[in-house]
């Protein structure tokens, strides 16, 4: 009853004089409503996994299935959030939020009302006619979140969306995203190099190692932590023990590759 499945996905990057194997035989699956984190050092190919799942990049071999269909055949399935908000500075907040509907040519009053409603839900009031430069980094990332959610994606891909924010904003946004994803029962994959963030937000953590990118180990987050808000997870007595286990695994991979 898996929702998203990757089967033996391998990817190469071809350069002028050589090639690199970015991903080697990646297989995992995600259940509907599940939150999975990909954790690993930089260069382990975790962002490549997201690009492939989103259909922006085509894997050199292997299969990606969403709801038992190849990912390229499913429409409107993916919401992608990047490290930075990448709001278009020359568009108003509302036009930025409505980017997806604009591309699919279904702009009407209903979707506009929904956009404003969603903006309010993430705590942004009366910003729809402002331009991105007048908003703070945290607000902009929240706009980007709304832009992702408005097309009602089946699966959310979060590519280190909190890494460019200051620590306080990051913790607050983690809670907000967590709350929203649970409320709408969304499936999500988070790419991060922050162990704490991975534990706080996800149900399962896939640790990857680099050169080539492989899955090193998968950790199930204890059930008590899963339904707790990310901010509270960090204080939970069970938090430290899983943190130590993940830390150990990451370190082991690092010493191997050095």
């Amino acid at each position: 009853m898996s929702f998203l499945t990757l089967e033996n996905v391998t990817h190469h990057y071809f350069g002028k004089n050589d090639y690199t194997k970015a991903l080697d035989d990646i297989s995992f699956s995600v259940k509907e409503g599940e939150f999975v984190s990909l954790l690993g050092p930089s260069g382990c190919g975790k962002s490549t996994v997201l690009s492939i799942v989103s259909g922006i990049m085509k894997q050199t071999s292997g299969k990606v299935l969403l709801d038992n269909k190849p990912i390229t055949e499913s429409e409107l399935a993916i919401g992608y959030m990047l490290q930075q908000d990448y709001l278009f500075p020359w568009k108003t907040i509302l036009d930025n939020v409505l980017l997806g509907p604009t591309i699919h040519n279904n702009i009407d009053q209903k979707i506009k009302a929904k956009a404003i409603e969603l903006l309010e839900e993430v705590g942004l009031y009366n910003v729809e006619n402002q331009y991105p430069p007048s908003l703070s980094g945290g607000m902009r990332q929240r706009v980007a979140l709304v832009r992702t959610l408005i097309t009602d994606p089946k699966i959310l891909l979060l590519d280190e969306p909190f890494s460019a924010l200051d620590y306080q904003t990051k913790l607050k946004l983690e809670d907000l995203v967590f709350k929203l994803l649970h409320a709408y029962h969304k499936t999500a994959i988070l790419v991060t190099h922050d162990i704490g963030e991975a534990i706080a937000m996800s149900d399962r953590i896939i640790v990857m190692s680099a050169n080539p990118g492989e899955i090193a180990k998968t950790f199930e987050v204890p059930i008590e932590l899963r339904n707790e808000m990310p901010f509270l997870v960090r204080r939970h007595p069970k938090y430290q023990s899983i943190f130590d286990k993940v830390w150990e695994e990451l370190n082991k991979n690092e010493t191997q590759s050095v």
Binding site: E75, L76, G79, F88, W90, L99, G100, I103, H104
Partner: peptide
């Protein structure tokens, strides 16, 4: 033009022409 703008658009399934119209040209 920052390729990430195109990435955002492509994640919504934008065509190359739509990328040009909504990101590359205005930027």
């Amino acid at each position: 033009v920052d390729p990430n703008y195109e990435k955002v658009l492509k994640s919504f399934g934008a065509t190359r022409w739509q990328c040009f119209k909504s990101a590359v040209f205005p930027a």
